[in-house]
Amino acid sequence: MSEPIAVRATPELHFRYAAGRYGSLFLRGLGEGRILASRCARCPRTLVPPRVACTHCFGKMEEIVEVPPRGTLLAFTLVAFPFLDPFTGVQRPIPYCYGMVQFEGTDNTFQYFLSEKDPSKLRVGQRVEAVFNEVRKGELGDLLHFRALE
């Protein structure tokens, strides 16, 4: 039998995800260098990014609050596999670290890039702060990374 055939294809699909009311508030907040969270009146929890339904008691999160742009690193890992940033279509330079950060005054963690690229220099419980880009557009990329406070 001759060689079996496999046909290569590179289909492209484009999406435009609605950030909705709460997501839009969060992105605009980043554009102003601020971290916004939603607060539940029932449980009561404060969650980042803000959302309409509380993940814990499913009630409506009515209140939007600003939280300090710093918190505690609760977990981190190293990204070593090459992938395309879905928003830019460009490959992000590897390796790098990202982590789970609990902002002061919130009840969940937010996952984002860390400035530190060497995991041996990171530790759980470390204090970190958000670093914003100087030029901001009201998008996730306005938040550059978290850097160690100590």
Binding site: Y17, A18, A19, G20, R21, Y22, G23, R51, V52, A53, F58, K60
Partner: peptide, 26 residues
């Protein structure tokens, strides 16, 4: 086009309406 509501907000809208109509809760 519902840019004012993401998927979660769209689902929240319809589920809350259902609960309002039926008197049920989560």
């Amino acid at each position: 086009r519902r840019d004012d509501a993401n998927y979660m907000e769209l689902a929240f809208e319809v589920i809350q309406d259902l609960f309002r109509k039926t008197g049920w809760s989560h």
